[in-house]
């Protein structure tokens, strides 16, 4: 219930309706959206029981390692009820046509694949918030100073997922494990998205806000 309460408010992209749908405008909308979502994500992380007790350096490393997976999992969760549509924000939905017009078809297809995976598993809200917190604690441990404390937090969250699923889905004893097995695909997809933004940054055609750039540089 603490994780459910920590969930950020709905987010709106408010894209400029006067601008034509081009790849640069679409990427600008997504970068601006991601920048604001990063602020919300940092605030969200602080509400995860135990996160704020970690050292500041470890809090930073965890967020730097996992932010794209966290944002992507949010998009996936918002998109679950819709077929063929990615809900980046309440007012910014990308379908196949829009993805082609905006030059985002590759990202659209791999993210849709992820949505399909979670839809097949019928990921519910409680599982989503727990999985998202687990993703935060599952960043590269090589960069972590106090591995034991991060491990303790991760164990706590993994126990929460197992407890929840064994109560709610008694007929599916492997459900929690199946959810954890989706994490490699989430990481792989997040890497593709990060690469896409790195390329866009190198081309210099899309303006990016400072926090987004800072987090992108950490990857």
């Amino acid at each position: 219930s603490q994780l459910l309460m920590a969930e950020p408010e709905k987010i709106y992209a408010t894209p400029d309706p006067g601008l034509p749908e081009t790849d640069i405008n679409a990427l600008s909308t997504l970068c601006e959206l991601a920048d604001r979502e990063l602020v919300l994500t940092i605030g969200w992380a602080k509400h995860i029981p135990g996160f704020s007790s970690l050292s500041l350096a470890d809090q930073m490393s965890l967020l730097q390692g996992s932010w794209m997976e966290i944002l992507l999992l949010g998009v996936v969760h918002r998109s679950l009820p819709f077929q063929g549509e990615l809900v980046y924000a309440e007012d910014y939905v990308v379908d196949e046509l829009r993805s082609r017009v905006c030059g985002l078809r590759d990202l659209y297809l791999c993210t849709l694949h992820l949505v399909h995976r979670y839809r097949t598993l019928r990921l519910d809200k409680e599982e989503y918030v727990t999985l998202k917190a687990l993703v935060l604690t599952n960043a590269d441990l090589l960069r972590i100073e106090d591995v034991q404390s991060v491990q303790r937090l991760q164990d706590l969250l993994q126990d929460a997922l197992h407890d929840y699923d064994s109560n709610q889905y008694r007929e599916e004893p492997r459900r929690a494990g199946q959810l954890l097995l989706t994490l490699p695909l989430l990481r792989q997809t997040a890497s593709k998205v990060v690469l896409h933004f790195h390329r866009a940054r190198a081309q210099g055609t899309v303006s990016m806000h400072k926090l987004f750039l800072e987090m992108l540089e950490a990857k």
Binding site: V39, I42, G43, K46, L56, A57, Q59, M60, L63, Q64, K210, L211, E214, M215, E217, A218
Partner: peptide
């Protein structure tokens, strides 16, 4: 941490 000023600041302070 110097390179990641905004993240550092947002974690240290309230939002």
């Amino acid at each position: 941490q110097e390179k990641h000023r905004i993240l550092h600041k947002l974690l240290q302070n309230g939002n």
